[in-house]
Design a protein around this nucleic acid. Structure first.
Lengths: 243, 243
DNA sequence: TAGATTGTTAATCGATTAACAATC
DNA sequence: TAGATTGTTAATCGATTAACAATC
């Protein structure tokens, strides 16, 4: 564990980052714009882009205005221009080399997953501390022990790591990642990591997501049965169907 | 109270669901409480629980108070009691049977992933529309064609589906899921789904998460180099030294 | 021009945090 | 009792939406 001093330390640079929610939506806008472009469209209004993604039109404009003025009043946004701009904002107008740490089921799957490569994220080195994994070859890369990470980070210019180790190994692995100089971690381990401020983490907690779904289904079942009781035979206007 | 003509769609039931963020944190509280319990602790204060997870203590209390009064002033919360309560709230005090739809890399991985099973989520049937997948056996389950989903939903009492198909197949697959009577979808396909209100969806968009990380790293690198320039120029102008 | 759509301000809505009486 | 901690209200903070002048 490095300098834990969370909180009030020198955050001023960080404070300039756009709110989490904005960036998530920008990512969605970009993908949708690419889809529109493929269909041959050249301009798009905030209203149309928003409707497709379930986002208010004012929100689309505000999100984009956060980074500059990219639209033409009366016309909308030029799709090709906006795509270039958004890629630059997100920092995906280039390739990123990543380490994959932990080659259990999830790690192996993410390695094969095509979704990342198409967007410039390349897994170029594999690490694990399990002796039964070290030396194995996946996608023509050999799994190396975690303590060789620093060296490889230098030789291959790794900037991000995907952390797919069990919860009880996560903090230790993360410490090694940090000391190797990597400054971005995509954390799939279901545990909070304590890290220095300069290291960026995005957590993907599959159990939390699934439990959220269980909560919703569980509670809409309850709501549903109450509604049934309430209006025994009145046809429930099941609002929007597909469309 | 139930059928207040609230705007466009009949959402009144849904409006009673706790905010997304609250549920996400409740899920984290539960996991942390289980960890505390394993270490033999019997009570916990909102302050201690919050600190461990990086959540404000007032927020912990408020989140829990959303569902009832579970604490003892001066003492804190009894861990074993709170665990039972939270499991009930989330609807994970029982088992959920799920369909896995799409057996590409990600689907296969999620099938093997241990994280779900331990929490009562069981994948009990596999579906795919790719002829090369149908009939194959994974974890002693045979992949069936998607159009047999409705039948299996009835026979096995499926309530949720994990959707792991490519983006361009997702809406069609989701329509079949919905028509089969399943009311919860964990969507890994990187595309928005258009679904009736009564169907619950939680989306897990790995590309969005990874792009968010890229954004953070990209921008903290910029911030970092500006900070370097700034401090360098304060006593060594025009220096371009790295490190 | 008339219609469409932006960027932006003001209004609204929701979520987080501080503060504190109640209470164990 | 004194110290600790809850549940909850009020204050703050942040995010979303409505509205509209500017402009293509």
């Amino acid at each position: 564990m490095r300098d834990v001093a969370r909180g009030r330390s020198g955050r001023s640079d960080r404070d300039k980052l756009a709110p989490k929610a904005v960036i998530g939506r920008v990512s969605l806008y970009l993908r949708q714009l690419e889809a529109f472009q493929e269909r041959g469209m050249t301009t798009i209004s905030s209203s149309r882009l928003g409707t497709t993604l379930g986002v208010n039109d004012a929100q689309v404009r505000k999100d984009l205005a956060y980074f500059g003025q990219f639209g033409c009043p009366g016309i909308g946004y030029r799709i090709d221009e906006l795509i270039v701009v958004l890629r630059g904002i997100l920092g995906i107008d280039r390739e990123w080399s990543m380490a994959l740490i932990g080659l259990g089921n999830l790690g192996q799957a993410l390695l094969k997953y095509r979704g990342f490569r198409g967007r410039g994220f390349r897994i170029v080195a594999l690490f694990d501390n399990d002796p039964s994994k070290i030396g194995k070859v996946f996608e023509s890369m050999t799994v190396a022990p975690l303590d060789s990470l620093a060296e490889t980070t230098r030789s291959l210019d790794l900037e991000m790591a995907i952390l797919c180790v069990p919860a009880d190994a996560a903090q230790h692995a993360a410490d090694i990642v940090v000391s190797s100089g990597i400054t971005g971690i995509l954390n799939f381990a279901p545990t909070p990591l304590v890290l220095p401020d300069r290291v960026n983490v995005v957590g993907v907690d599959l159990s939390v997501q699934l439990e959220h779904l269980a909560y919703k289904v569980h509670n809409s079942q309850i709501a549903g049965s109450i509604a049934l009781e309430d209006s025994a035979s009145s046809f429930r206007p099941t609002s929007t169907s597909l469309e």
